[in-house]
């Protein structure tokens, strides 16, 4: 069977009941989808299947012949981040980063489907994604900013956030 991942078609050798998550990580070396619960409960493995966010830990690869899969590797590279990626950087929406790949893909689909910056709508759309680090505040901030189309100059972001005025205080 064939799988199109981030614009490239691969012939898949794994047995048909292998999960899409395992195929991506183990056979194709695409590591952004994370292995969280493997029960559909955390969202860390979320990828886009023909544009829709799906939990790759629950999908047998045999059901996906010919499908188009998008992962974080298929979004922007460091120099050309997609708006939603830039918003995550600007708003410090990742700490350990384990939930981040899944959230980026779900947020990408949310915005592509016309999602707004309404915080309740964001929480409803992304509510199935567990994050143990951030407390969600900065994630919702980032998704709302991307939905609004806010633009960020990330070089300024870094300078602004990293330069605190430490001199003059306690030694």
């Amino acid at each position: 069977m064939n799988l199109n991942v981030n614009g490239r078609t691969h012939e898949i050798e794994s047995p048909p009941l292998t999960t899409l998550l395992d195929v991506l990580r183990e056979e194709l070396g695409v590591h952004s989808p994370k292995v969280g619960c493997e029960q559909g409960g955390c969202g860390a493995c979320t990828v886009l299947v023909d544009g829709a966010p799906r939990r790759s830990c629950l999908l047998p690869v045999a059901a996906l012949d010919g499908a188009e899969i998008t992962t974080v590797e298929g979004l922007g590279a460091a120099e050309h981040l997609e708006p939603v990626q830039a918003a995550f950087v600007h708003h410090y929406a990742a700490q350990c980063g384990f939930c981040t790949s899944g959230l980026l893909m779900a947020a990408t689909a949310y915005i592509a489907n016309g999602g707004t910056d309404d915080r309740e709508a964001i929480a409803e759309a992304l509510g199935g994604h567990v994050c143990r680090c951030t407390g969600y505040v900065k994630i919702v901030d980032a998704v709302a900013a991307a939905a609004r189309g806010d633009e960020f100059d990330l070089s300024v972001t870094a300078a602004g956030l990293f330069t605190t005025t430490m001199s003059g205080g306690a030694a």
């Binding site: 619960c37 029960q39 964001i122 992304l126 199935g128 969600y136 994630i139 306690a170």
Partner: peptide, 27 residues
Amino acid sequence: GQFGSYLAPGMEDLPVMDTVLIENPSV
């Protein structure tokens, strides 16, 4: 016994949140 039977807070549990930092320096 499994992930789904442990209730961790999700985005929909997020309350209105305010954070205030006080800088009372240590030695």
